[in-house]
Simulated scan of single mutants.
Amino acid sequence: MGQAIELYSPIYNQFRYIQMIIAQIDNINKLKSPSKEKDLSQPAPTSLLNLNTAFDPMSNEVVRPPPVTLYYNECFARIRATSSVSADLKAEFVNAKAPGYLPSPGRSPTFFMSSQTAKYLVKELKPSEVPLFLGFVQDYATYLETHPDSLLIRYLLFFKIDQTSFIIMPNAFAPPAVGLSAIPPAQLHPRLKYDLKGSTVHRTSKGDAILKDNNCNRLFVFDQKTRATVVNNLKLDSLFLKQHGFLDYSLLVGVTSSLKRYGRFEQEHKLTSKSLNAIMVNSLVEQDLQLIQKEVTEQKIHAFLTTNSELCYLQIIDFFTVYTPKKQMEKFFKSFAHPADQLSVQTPDFYCERFQRFISEIIISDFGM
């Protein structure tokens, strides 16, 4: 995933320090945040992780890493406990030899790094995002506990190395781990990926791996029960974000090919060994589809089978934007050249309403089809 990190580059060293932090995850889970009441001048209770010396899995040596600060550790421990994060989080990072690196597609200096199999991602936070996150963390952790089916991206750990802040999150497109008989496991990775906001201005991808609103020329069709569950959760999530003044978030969608086609053979009119084989393999595919849905649920992966037997990954991401005076001016000037209601920059109320209307239009049920 992404490009290789040059040996001993600054990014490579950052990842080595992150490995040392994750190697201490068992101790991190036991750390307590200060019990004193929140001081608005210091908006985040923090825990200091004692890494005066730490084992470096890259060099097999004990080294002295830079200072590490954990933000709201107890909140993130609660999120990790409800997100099916187990020993593989530690193994994914400590065992990584050549972590992937994804530079930001925009002008921002932020970047992503991936764990060994890209099951988890590390994101550098912009300085402007840090105070927004700090003021949101406690409500965010409580919301995820009370809404376990929420489609908000799960942030698992928030920490600072020297003066740079990072978050660790699951990869929204990491496939379920299942033992399949008829469906090739590689086909559980998305074939198409979309970043959707419900706006049309500057929402066209030109050869990018992630498509945008104007590139999305399809609907996502589920059975009635699944559709109701998905749309309801997305509406609750967007209302929660609106309450915190957030806007400009995206619905990240990944869609596989139809999984049923892997059991299909060219049918013949006569009952031959070939057509018998087709019947048997199709039966295996049905069993595999049921297994996939079961494992997706148990592994708490935000994915659902469409009526066309595609595995559709869904997640709300990138919600640390608020309607500042700068954003108001941006909307004002852009509205001279584009329809105001189609701009990405909106008030939180309008953005939420438009987002909900949009998802209701593209996520539909098979009723009457």
Rank of each mutant, 00 (worst) to 15 (best):
M1S: 14
R107Q: 10
I79M: 02
S360C: 14
K38N: 12
A177V: 15
K294F: 07
Y17K: 05
T117D: 13
A174W: 14
L49H: 06
D162Y: 05
D341A: 06
I301Y: 07
F336C: 00
A4L: 13
V63Q: 06
N277T: 11
E266V: 14
Y140I: 03
R78K: 15
G368T: 03
A98T: 12
L252F: 14
F265D: 12
K30C: 04
L48Q: 14
L40F: 12
N217D: 11
V231T: 10
G100L: 06
F320M: 14
P105G: 04
L31C: 03
A98V: 06
V281F: 05
H338K: 05
Y143S: 05
D223C: 10
L289V: 05
T229K: 14
D195E: 09
L252A: 11
A340M: 11
Y323T: 00
A177M: 13
P45E: 05
V178C: 15
E145A: 15
I183N: 05
Q267W: 09
S165R: 02
H202D: 13
F55N: 02
F76V: 02
L284S: 13
T53K: 15
Y101V: 10
V285L: 06
K327C: 01
L156M: 02
V68L: 03
P348Q: 08
P99R: 08
S199G: 04
K160M: 07
S9V: 10
L251M: 11
Y17W: 12
D195C: 01
I183T: 08
Q328S: 01
E266F: 12
L121M: 15
L31S: 05
I28G: 07
P148E: 11
F304W: 11
T117F: 10
N214C: 11
L89M: 03
L271I: 14
V178A: 15
K212H: 07
L144M: 13
M169S: 09
A182W: 02
K274G: 04
K270P: 00
P170C: 04
G135T: 07
N95C: 02
N27C: 00
E145C: 09
R227D: 01
